[in-house]
């Protein structure tokens, strides 16, 4: 292509591009103006987007909803729950750290704060790391019906970092359960886990004890039943009080 032709092509193509962008913008506006936003559901908008953008948009919308929930929270329980949900969901590590640290330092007496404590459990990259014994002393503050979720959050955390820890760490984490008399059926899952790990390393006495406690826990009511009963009792008591 000669120099003259190249210059000629550039002189044609630049205004053509300008016309293209101008007409595209007007046509796009015209298409958008056709749409009544009240008729269109957010799901139908999201369906039109590619996966990568949809994921990001869903994340931002969900995060905004969580921030709104946090702002609307009135009691401490509501606030801790909203903060934990937001802290678990956010993809910003600084925001996650800030939220979980605030929960850990201000709301340690709430069982809803378990996710924040689990976040720091054996977290070697974090200077505010919590050891297994620290976590045990935290969970022992709560009665058994609330303690179960704290155990579960800790166990989930250990599952997430399973490549960095040993099976012994998992057993050590669950070991205090062997000294506890189970009051709820839900604990049977945790005893099964102890029995599985102990059986794998042939700690027969631990395995036998875990199995015995498993059998014992199976005879107990579930936490859900207990809490419902508790709620009904308080409602009945309130009703009688009114009479």
């Amino acid at each position: 292509m000669t120099q003259k032709k190249k210059i000629g092509l550039i002189f044609i193509i630049v205004p053509v591009f300008l016309l293209y962008f101008l007409s595209e913008a007007v046509l796009r506006e015209a298409a958008v103006a056709n749409i009544n936003p009240q008729k269109v559901k957010i799901d139908s908008i999201l369906n039109e987007l590619p996966d990568s953008v949809r994921d990001l948009v869903v994340y931002r919308i969900t995060r905004t909803e969580m921030l709104n929930n946090l702002a609307a929270a009135e009691t401490d329980d509501e606030k801790v729950s909203a903060m934990v949900v937001l802290g678990s969901y956010t993809r910003d590590p600084l925001e996650k750290e800030k939220i979980f640290w605030e929960v850990r330092s201000k709301y340690a007496d709430h069982p809803e704060s378990a996710a924040a404590f689990a976040y720091y459990l054996l977290n070697d990259e974090n200077p505010k790391r919590i050891s297994l014994s620290d976590y045990h002393s935290y969970l022992k503050k709560f009665p058994q019906q609330y303690q179960y979720n704290v155990w579960a959050a800790g166990l989930n955390r250990l599952n997430d970092i399973r490549k960095k820890i040993t099976w012994k760490d998992r057993l050590d984490f669950l070991r205090p359960l062997l000294d506890m008399k189970p009051e709820f059926r839900d604990y049977s899952v945790l005893y099964t886990e102890i029995s599985r790990i102990a059986g794998r390393f042939e700690f027969r006495d631990i395995e036998a004890k875990a199995e015995a406690l498993y059998d014992e826990s199976r005879l107990c009511p579930s936490i859900m039943e207990f809490l419902m009963q508790e709620e009904m009792d308080s409602l009945n008591a309130g009703g009688k009080g009114k009479k």
Binding site: R28, A31, V32, I35, P37, V40, I45, L46, E48, L49, P50, S52, V53, L56, V57, R60, I61
Partner: peptide, 21 residues
Amino acid sequence: FIPIAMAMLPKGVAGAAGGVV
């Protein structure tokens, strides 16, 4: 449909990914 769907979203929600798309 992408530009039309993007225009329906609240401003800034799509972020940089929106620009790439």
